[in-house]
């Protein structure tokens, strides 16, 4: 069956060269539209802020300023990552749409998969040790279980 929409989920840090090449290559072969998603995760930011307010007893203003600085930086990195995919897609003549979403990674990926009727999702995961991978496995298992489309997982470069 021919694919119409392919989703590439970019990591918040680390390289995604192999996943990008695979997603663009597949989209070209299938003449499909490629969506690249960068999720602006708030968990790490919230963790730092929680430490500041709970352990450091620092008021709202420095916490807000810190949060804004972190979010701004992450957004910038997201634009850069999406830009890389865009260049590659343009070179290969693939129809491309960048997406940036803020929130929890799992739900945002599912939302896009369902909302854009995605046929294949290519996801990049962080390089992890065996034990950490064992602990995090439910994320991809759960995603594969809940997602209406096929999921391919790539390790970051």
């Amino acid at each position: 069956m021919k694919m119409k929409n392919i989703l590439l989920v970019l990591p918040s840090s680390g390289g995604a060269g192999r996943a990008i090449a695979h997603a663009v290559g597949t989209a070209k072969k299938e003449s499909a539209t490629l969506f690249a998603l960068y999720v602006l995760e708030t968990e790490v930011t919230e963790d730092a802020l929680e430490r500041l307010t709970d352990m450091g007893f620092i008021g709202e203003r420095p916490s807000t300023e810190l949060s804004e600085a972190i979010t701004k930086e992450k957004r910038q990195r997201g634009y850069e990552s999406l830009g890389q995919v865009q260049i590659k897609a343009m070179e290969e003549g693939v129809e491309f749409e960048p997406l940036m979403e803020q929130g929890e990674r799992f739900s945002k990926i599912l939302e896009v998969i369902e909302g854009r009727a995605v046929d294949l999702a290519v996801i990049v995961r962080k390089k992890e040790r065996t034990i950490a991978r064992y602990l995090h496995r439910p994320f991809f298992d759960e995603l594969k279980e809940k997602s209406p489309c096929a999921i391919e997982v790539f390790d970051e470069d």
Binding site: S12, S13, V44, T45, D47, A48, R51, L52, M55, G56, I58, L66, I70, E73, K74, R77
Partner: peptide, 15 residues
């Protein structure tokens, strides 16, 4: 550890 003190958590949040 990042949980030890806010300064460590802040450094980690830089990526």
């Amino acid at each position: 550890l990042p949980i030890s003190t806010p300064a460590n958590a802040i450094a980690i949040s830089s990526n």
